[in-house]
Design a protein around this nucleic acid. Structure first.
Lengths: 334, 334
DNA sequence: GTGAAAGCGCTAACAG
DNA sequence: CTGTTAGCGCTTTCAC
């Protein structure tokens, strides 16, 4: 079904007996240098109201080459609903859009689309700039970096693009100092099998900082949810004085997974094993216990990304990477 | 910054030495009745590739009155991140969009916008149809119902519009039968102070069904998170044989809140007090305990809404309200 | 099979 | 202060 047509500028102009330009100037603020007398202005506004005139954004954008729409491209196809990380990021993007009077276009990626197809779709004139949420090796990074579309990458840094991230590396220091102060000397870092710069940064920082502090740090790489207790059985089988006493997890979902396993097997947290996370995802089971974790300000990442994108669209120079601070949140698990 | 211009149809046409129409027909499928020889077709495709031609969606939409974009309007300003309900709905909308080759435009509501402003923004030609997520009394319902823009309401039914909802009323029967079978005779329904038809439907169905089954049902209306234990103190102060033995909550967030309070005060669940919810929101603390609740298929609501909207855009007749079934999920709390 | 003409609804640029 | 001209890039319609 085609959309019905309503009144156009021409209709209003004819009704009032002025030119389309005059009407345009009155109704859209005009391009600055055009002035309309108070009398005509009111007659125009009246007629517009009477005719229920609604400006056509498509025509306006085609002409002005400005849409006031910000695109969002996600390189991740699945959405893990337990991880509210993306929901918070999106919430921040929406807040930023409200502030700068932009709308958000969530680009769908269709089955069978090549990188070239997606790139073409992103460059089709409907958006003024793009928020990119994708790994640094995403096939769209290169074409986007060489296009003239303003782009801001979020969560994971992309070297060729303006990026907004959280201080992944900065999380190591406070967590390890806290754990060390509580007497922990042997730790294990639970990482994940995913090649993301943010994940790598967290991991490397912990490794380095642990070395500097003289702490032993073992490695444990596992998928989001482990399906058996073999790691825990191995841990239990070791002499008490050789066991790591704390598990530092790369994110909260992994930390909650460890907690679940501990409860299941009967390992007391934090007495026998301390557990920490990263993200600080909101937990519906709030006051039962709180995870000791690192709060990453994902909503603020979203807001900042919109701000930088708007500045870039307006022709300003923006920093290559903006890193937002994180914060240790003390809970009951470490 | 204005967008850079790339190659247009005209450039390709001149390069090949044919008319713009021929190029358009080759590159956009054409309006059916135009046929192009294999030879020209290939020359056109070659030239397009060489010139890095990218069609301008704005111009195309302006002319064809079709955008392949679906708008999303939310009448709720805040987003409760603990409640993944909206995230799941949005996920379903995205899945539907992938299936029907649409993109999603999230309309921002700017400070100071009147209903008329918002309505104008929604009617500006950028979308083919709208998904509306708002209470039935939202000020935009009436203008949208009388406009010619296809609209589908989700989650809460809107009488004048095509709606996709879950079987709010149908949740009462299985929950109450289950509780009755476990010996519960005195219940309390925890509702919320929010005028939503879905909330009303749930509440009314429970009241009615409880009456039919001869169960006593008390009322407890509270905000999402209670801030004191007065309800529980009142409950504890009553003689054991007069206390309700189960709390039926209008949604999962309220149920988790009750569970938190019980843990805090030391009321055993489900022995002393059973607790049920509604929604089945994913819980990061999965295997520690599972909430007994009613699963509402929010993602499917999203997918269905997109399907019905597309059918409506294509001129088909669609049902007034589509009600998707819910399902009792047995957990550890009742 | 292909092309020419005629806009979609709006605004930039310049003239009066 | 207001109007005219000339498109933005594409597709519809109809002619050849």
């Amino acid at each position: 079904m085609r959309q019905r047509r309503g009144a156009t500028l021409k209709d209003v102009a004819e009704q009032v007996g002025v030119s389309r330009m005059t009407v345009s100037a009155v109704l859209s603020g005009g391009s600055g240098n055009i002035r309309v007398s108070q009398a005509t202005r009111e007659r125009v506004l009246d007629a517009a109201r009477k005719l229920r005139y609604r400006p056509n954004a498509l025509a306006r954008s085609l002409r002005s080459r400005t849409t006031n729409v910000i695109g969002v491209y996600s390189g991740y196809h699945y959405f893990e609903p337990r991880n509210s990380f993306f929901a918070q990021l999106l919430g921040g993007l929406q807040e930023g859009c409200v502030e700068y009077r932009k709308d958000l276009l969530l680009h769908s990626v269709f089955r069978g689309d090549t990188a070239e197809d997606i790139h073409t779709a992103l460059m089709d004139g409907r958006i003024d700039g793009l928020i990119m949420f994708a790994p640094a090796h995403d096939p769209l990074v290169e074409p986007l970096a060489t296009s003239h579309l303003p782009v801001v990458a979020v969560a994971d840094p992309v070297s060729a693009l303006t990026s907004v991230t959280v201080d992944d590396a900065g999380s190591a220091r406070p967590v390890l100092e806290y754990l060390a102060a509580r007497g922990h000397r042997r730790l294990v870092y639970r990482s994940v099998d995913r090649v993301l710069i943010s994940v790598e940064r967290r991991h490397a920082a912990f490794r380095e900082e642990a070395g500097r502090m003289g702490l032993t740090m073992e490695e444990w790489c596992a998928t989001d949810r482990v399906t058996d207790d073999s790691w825990f059985e191995g841990w239990l089988a070791r002499p008490t004085h050789e066991r790591p006493t704390a598990v530092v997890c790369w994110n909260d979902v992994a930390a909650y997974d460890v907690l679940d396993r501990c409860a299941h097997i009967g390992i007391r947290v934090p007495e026998a094993l301390a557990v920490t996370g990263f993200d600080d995802i909101p937990n519906p089971v709030a006051s039962r216990f709180r995870l000791t974790t690192v709060r990453a300000p994902w909503a603020e990442v979203g807001r900042t990304a919109v701000r930088l994108l708007v500045e870039q669209i307006d022709g300003a120079e923006v920093p290559g990477e903006t890193v937002l601070p994180v914060e240790l949140v003390l809970g009951d698990t470490a």
